[in-house]
């Protein structure tokens, strides 16, 4: 017995739509992940993350005094950090 293909059309279309939505969500989530890693990389390169860790470790809120303290703590380590040619 042959079943006409149209009989499955609405179900197929629904499944296809769900798959599309799912694929789009996956793509968006992938892009969001990439962007968040990119932002984290920049924050690490530019010491923003180091400053956040300093605040957490010291238990103080961000302020100009806190940033000055962070810079004083970091100066010594940064000055010894080699940088390539």
């Amino acid at each position: 017995m042959t079943i006409p293909s149209e009989a499955f059309a609405p179900a197929r279309s629904g499944a296809r739509n769900r798959r599309r939505v799912f694929a789009a969500a996956e793509v968006i989530s992938f892009i969001a992940r990439v962007l968040s890693v990119f932002a984290a990389t920049l924050r690490e390169i530019f010491d923003e993350s180091a400053y956040q860790r300093f605040l957490k470790r010291s238990g103080i809120p961000s302020s100009s005094v806190a940033y000055a303290m962070f810079q004083r703590e970091n100066n010594q380590a940064q000055a010894r950090r080699p940088r390539c040619c």
Partner: peptide, 24 residues
């Protein structure tokens, strides 16, 4: 929390590349 910090590999990659890439 200062020198020794387990870090995402992409982040370390960026950090490492920024340090090795100079005018040379």
């Amino acid at each position: 929390g200062r020198d020794f910090i387990p870090t995402n590999k992409w982040v370390v990659f960026g950090h490492h590349f920024a340090a090795i890439a100079g005018p040379g």
